[in-house]
Write a protein that binds this DNA or RNA. Structure first.
Lengths: 121, 121
DNA sequence: GCCAATCACTTGCATTTTGCAAGTAAATTG
DNA sequence: CAATTTACTTGCAAAATGCAAGTGATTGGC
């Protein structure tokens, strides 16, 4: 089990343990971007929500440390990394999709991003 | 649309807008507890993750302000409130369930809470 | 090859949020 | 009635986020 963030105590609850890995806004937004097909720092940085550079770098590191993404040397630019979902990370699709669908149903003015992969890899 | 938390910019993305409402660990844990059937402050406080009293009070207020729960005078104790999911709140069940199932599948040592309502109200 | 621009992060510090523990008023219990 | 319990509230320390500048590497133009 992942060590709980903050002062939260240990719990065997799968919701709590999952939230220790993904339970913050920026992590989930980055996951959304990964499902949309973004792979590079610059792309995540350009998302409309405006993540801070330190938060983005830190979150990508954590996602990699938790086995949700793999960072490989980029073929586009020397010295930068390409980030891709692992199978473990891809298995979060139902979570991201459920959030999206709730948002579409309950929040006026929202529109789905073009290109989010909802099918099989 | 709900005003974005922190310095996040406005976005039409349903994931981002939904996360403005529910995208933090404590909110999702409280939602879990509500689905389990907890209704009172004391019950949420007793969850194994150990939420702080100020965070609990603040989150319950926000959930109510966002129309996800309704606070009514408690029949159990004078002067306290009973918190229940609204229909809008209940429509988050697929989100909480998806998180739970990911946790069960991906995080060793987790066990589902007894009594979480997965069927229809 | 040189230099400016761009990029991928990193750093320093201000602001905000969370966490801890004590406080307070109301309600319950003995 | 006094003590205990409960439902929050408050004050402040610790942690996280946000902003903006910094740094080294790479690219592109000349």
């Amino acid at each position: 089990m992942v060590k709980p963030k903050g002062a939260g105590k240990r719990s065997v609850c799968p919701v709590a343990c999952a939230l220790d890995v993904i339970g913050d806004r920026w992590t989930l937004l980055i996951l959304r971007d990964l499902f949309v097909g973004k792979t590079h720092y610059r792309e995540f940085l350009a998302s409309p929500e405006g993540i801070a550079t330190n938060i983005l770098a830190s979150r990508l590191d954590e996602l990699a440390a938790n086995g949700l993404i793999r960072a490989t040397p980029s073929r586009e630019r020397e010295g930068s990394r390409s980030y891709r979902l692992t199978a473990r990370g891809r298995s979060l699709l139902p979570v991201v999709r459920a959030i999206k669908e709730w948002g579409l149903a309950q929040i006026p003015g929202t529109r789905a991003l073009v290109g989010m992969k909802t099918g099989d890899r």
